[in-house]
């Protein structure tokens, strides 16, 4: 062996990691494809539902609906912001792709919360589970978003549904982490007091820990939303439609107009979703001690109904 080879042993790939992973993935695809196709079903169903509502309804109706939801969540100001964002999206000619993106994000975020919050709770309850979960989350968060695309395309194919799935993988980490953190940060004596007065672990979770962890959990929800928005552009590389695709095409063709429309659209969708979700994070106290059905449009409606009956 000559000296040059000894000093530079990395001329050849000695550990063919890439080949191994490729082989593993090929094997999984070959043997378990039906499983992954089945996993797509619930995601597809939810996405279809969101798309049907958002895309097939007249824009003014959608705006009114978001206006009401915003009012309910955070009051008149949130309502105005929501309607304003949607109006701007419509005016710059990004309505249809924006509705697609919104449907994708809402689907991805719903699944993230559905899976992430229970995982966060389990992590908060079990140190061992947390110890297992933490490196996985670290790993998931270090992987560049592009890298997720490869296995997802192999296992799930291309299109909007795989796009939602890749977004879920990318955006789920913060909600798990911050649910775990929020629950663990609840003052020990408050939990102890709840035990001392006969609370069961589940009662304490829902009556003490979750409410007190809510601000932290809402931060997690917010980050999850923002990360799924960030993923829309990347995901458009696997044929996901919507605002991301506008941006991607804009870059590809150096079409500044298209890229701007798409980019601004994403920002406006981000503001819309963020404001509404933050509104829901307010405590009953910030709403002047009323429950959610006692104020906003629902409250007004209930009052009218009650008045009508009396």
């Amino acid at each position: 062996m000559d000296v040059a080879t000894l000093l530079d042993p990395f001329q050849e790939t000695l550990v063919p990691l890439g080949d191994w992973v490729a082989a593993l993935l090929a094997w999984v695809v070959e043997n378990y494809r039906p499983v992954f196709q089945a996993l797509k079903q619930p995601v597809a169903a939810v996405l279809d539902a969101f798309e049907a509502v958002l895309r097939d309804s007249p824009p003014l109706l959608v705006m009114a609906a978001f206006g009401f939801v915003g009012w309910q969540s955070g009051g008149p100001r949130t309502s105005a912001v929501a309607v304003g964002c949607l109006a701007a999206i419509g005016l710059i000619g990004a309505w249809d792709p924006a509705m697609t993106t919104l449907a994708i994000i809402l689907t991805a975020v719903s699944f993230c919360l559905l899976i992430g919050i229970p995982l966060g709770i389990l992590a908060a309850r079990g140190d061992r589970f947390e110890a297992v979960l933490k490196p996985i989350l670290d790993f998931m968060q270090t992987i560049p978003s592009f890298v997720y695309l490869v296995p997802v395309v192999m296992l799930f194919g291309i299109g909007n549904v795989p796009g939602v799935i890749v977004t879920i993988f990318y955006a789920i980490a913060p909600i798990i982490r911050l649910t775990n953190l929020g629950i663990r940060q609840v003052r020990g004596d408050l939990v102890e007091a709840a035990y001392a007065f006969g609370g069961s672990p589940n009662q304490i979770l829902f009556k003490v820990q979750m409410p007190l962890a809510l601000p932290t959990i809402m931060t997690g929800v917010n980050q999850t939303i923002m990360m799924s928005l960030a993923m829309t552009v990347v995901a458009s590389m696997i044929s996901v439609t919507g605002l991301g695709q506008m941006v991607l095409r804009g870059i590809g063709r150096l079409d500044v107009a298209l890229a701007t429309q798409g980019g601004l659209g994403i920002v406006l969708v981000a503001i819309l979703v963020d404001r509404i979700s933050q509104g829901f994070g307010q405590s009953a106290r910030e709403r002047r001690h009323r429950r959610w059905y006692q104020h906003g449009p629902v409250g007004a409606l209930l009052q009218v109904l009650r008045g009508g009956r009396a």
């Binding site: 003052r187 004596d189 408050l190 102890e192 007091a193 709840a194 001392a196 007065f197 006969g198 003490v208 409410p211 007190l212 405590s283 009953a284 106290r285």
Partner: peptide
Amino acid sequence: AEAIGMVFQHMALWPH
């Protein structure tokens, strides 16, 4: 819940 009441040094009232 029924037979023992407890009072804590730092009150430990639930703020929410």
